[in-house]
């Protein structure tokens, strides 16, 4: 389990996270929703230890201060594929350190994400959807136990989002714990085992995806009605 306990983070006087407690279970999808600027991405960056919290701790399988990689990895909204390497090389470079069967596994990932037609292209020769799948494959080839995804469907159309949803279900079945930040409420409803609603640096409401149909807090009710209006 990837756990955060009493996590606090501020930049100067600006409090971003104010006492977050959260468990990401292996084989489960946890979706984080909430207004922009409410600390979702900061929470993700803290969980993969790209930043340090002011207070609180992060436990990876009960271990404090454990090196996060390759057990925990992340895919960001902007993907960050290395532009001078082909998509295949983007996936293979990290694989060499952490996966002795990388050569075999990459073929499986190419099939899983249907990347046969473009795997030897460079990132700038590929569409957003293709790059999205490569970024996911690059994260998965190192055999992580937890994958943190920051709005990876934000630039995708409905069809590609549905494909990603299917892929995430496959990963869940493989026992990978997924933390997913999304603005798509319907995507969270379909994908998640657990939903957390963040606002003002705190988890205001959490539970099964049912909370999106019957929210108890006024703040989540307001957010969902605005989200419904916007969509």
């Amino acid at each position: 389990m990837l756990s955060v306990r009493n996590l606090h983070k501020s930049y100067g006087d600006n409090v971003i996270l104010n006492g977050i407690d959260l468990d990401i279970e292996a084989g489960h999808i946890t979706c984080a929703i909430g207004p922009s600027g409410t600390g979702k991405t900061t929470l993700l960056r803290l969980m993969c230890q790209l930043e340090k919290p002011n207070r609180g701790e992060i436990l990876i399988d009960e271990e404090k201060n454990a090196a996060p990689w390759p057990k925990v990895t992340a895919v960001f909204q902007s993907l960050f594929l290395w532009p001078h390497l082909t998509l295949r090389e983007n996936i293979m470079l990290p694989a060499r350190n952490h996966n002795p069967e990388a050569e075999k596994d990459i073929e499986g990932l190419i099939k899983l994400f249907e990347m046969e037609a473009f795997i030897n292209n460079y990132p700038n020769q590929s569409s957003v959807g293709q790059r999205q799948r490569v970024a996911l494959a690059r994260a998965l080839i190192i055999n992580p136990k937890y994958v943190l995804l920051d709005e990876i469907t934000s630039a995708l159309d409905v069809e590609q989002t549905a494909k990603i949803l299917t892929k995430l279900s496959h990963l869940k079945e493989r026992g990978i714990g997924i933390f997913l930040i999304t603005h798509h409420i319907s995507f969270a409803q379909k994908a998640a085992d657990k939903v957390i609603f963040l606002d003002g640096g705190k988890i205001v409401e959490q539970g099964s995806p049912d909370i999106l149909a019957a929210p108890t807090s006024h703040r989540l009710q307001d957010f969902l009605s605005l989200a419904k209006f916007a969509s």
Binding site: C48, L50, P70, F80, P94, N97, I142
Partner: peptide
């Protein structure tokens, strides 16, 4: 961002510099 990607995919410091 390329360094962040190298970090989260577990590249070593040497790999990050040279690759």
């Amino acid at each position: 961002q390329y360094l962040i990607a190298a970090k989260v995919t577990g590249l070593t410091r040497k790999q990050t510099i040279f690759k």
